[in-house]
Amino acid sequence: MIITGLICGALLGFVMQRGRFCLTGGFRDMYIAKDNRMFYALLIAIAVQSIGVYLLIQTGVIQFSAGAFPWVAVIIGSFIFGIGIVFAGGCATGTWYRAGEGLIGSWIALFGYMVMSAVMKSGFLFPVNQSLQATTLPSNSIPETLGVSVWIFIAILVAVVIWILIKEVNKPKVVIPSLKPKRTGLSYFLFEKRWHPFFTAVLIGAIAILAWPLSQATGRMAGLGITTPSANIIQYSVTGDVSYINWGVFLVLGIFLGSFIAAKASREFRFRMPDTKTGINSFIGGNLMGFGASLAGGCSIGNGLVMTAMMTWQGWISLLFIILGTWTASYFVFVRPQKIKAQSVSTTA
């Protein structure tokens, strides 16, 4: 039943909102603040999903084919997508869940993202999309290319994750005394307590595993995915063709719903109108996201979380270029203006 997409999406939206799981901020902070925690959290989610999904494949529950590797489209599209998420203030999934919190800027970015994704997939830019994706390498699977078992790569990833966890646990903790009485209980944990990004990552990895059999039960042979379902909503709205309505569409609508529930219950929902500059940047960023993710065959979730877990060239190379695109945009949006401002102050002084 495609309604399971709504349930899976609602779980994902709830967890991402409560855990503040923002890959845009995480990739940006790697460059600006030298803070890698959100990137580490992503690696944890990838490792959890990879173990679970390949167990499902080996037991015959689901099927997966890596296909060919459209390397030109992945590199160009991922870099553009990385630039777009900085201007939009959130990646594709982050934009969906932040829209559920009432951020009008995210609504603007989401509209641009959905429309451009539809234009790339069935509109006047479809020939551009198709021609760039036509340049491929025959094997997209890293294990198949190198002729080794996928479990070797999973074991390496798990070892890296364990090393990260040990390193982070052994870091000295800064304890800030609180004057508030210590609270406990399920309600406090769900709606008040700040979730650790690593705990959030484990939950996201588990939801990503769940998405595969639920999606394939409806005939959609994929896991979590944001870009194509987002485009499908626009395509259905324009054409009325019900074939565009599938499990993935319910997934992204569920992300919005789950985030809304979490934000309302934690008293974090409120409508926030951006200023003119932010609104324009959000729309530009949304369009760049839609163009880049459609070209690359996935966003920071479709490629950065799912295709990485499947140990594909597409996933890991896309993740690399998304990060590079994010760093490039962060330099021009955040770092360079601060340098210019500092130079101006020192000159006038």
Rank of each mutant, 00 (worst) to 15 (best):
M1S: 12
I2D: 09
I2K: 05
I3L: 12
T4Q: 05
G5R: 03
G13N: 09
G26K: 01
Y31H: 09
A33R: 13
F39S: 09
Y40N: 12
L43G: 06
L43W: 10
I44M: 12
G52M: 02
Y54K: 00
V61D: 10
S78I: 00
F81K: 02
F81A: 03
I83M: 14
I85P: 02
G90T: 11
G94N: 08
W96V: 07
E101Y: 07
L103S: 13
I104T: 14
W107R: 08
L110G: 11
S117E: 10
V119N: 06
M120C: 11
L125M: 13
L125R: 04
Q130W: 06
L137H: 04
L137P: 00
W151I: 07
F153R: 01
W163L: 14
K171M: 15
P177R: 00
R183T: 13
T184Y: 14
G185Y: 10
S187Y: 13
Y188R: 08
W195N: 04
H196W: 08
L203G: 11
I204Q: 02
I209Q: 01
L210K: 05
L210Q: 05
L214V: 05
S215D: 02
Q216L: 06
T218M: 01
T218S: 05
I233K: 09
Q235D: 14
S237V: 13
T239A: 11
S243C: 02
S243K: 12
S243M: 06
V249L: 07
I255Q: 08
P274Y: 06
T278A: 13
N281W: 06
F283R: 00
G285Y: 03
T312Y: 01
W313S: 02
G325E: 03
V333P: 06
A342R: 11
A342W: 07
Q343K: 15
T347A: 15
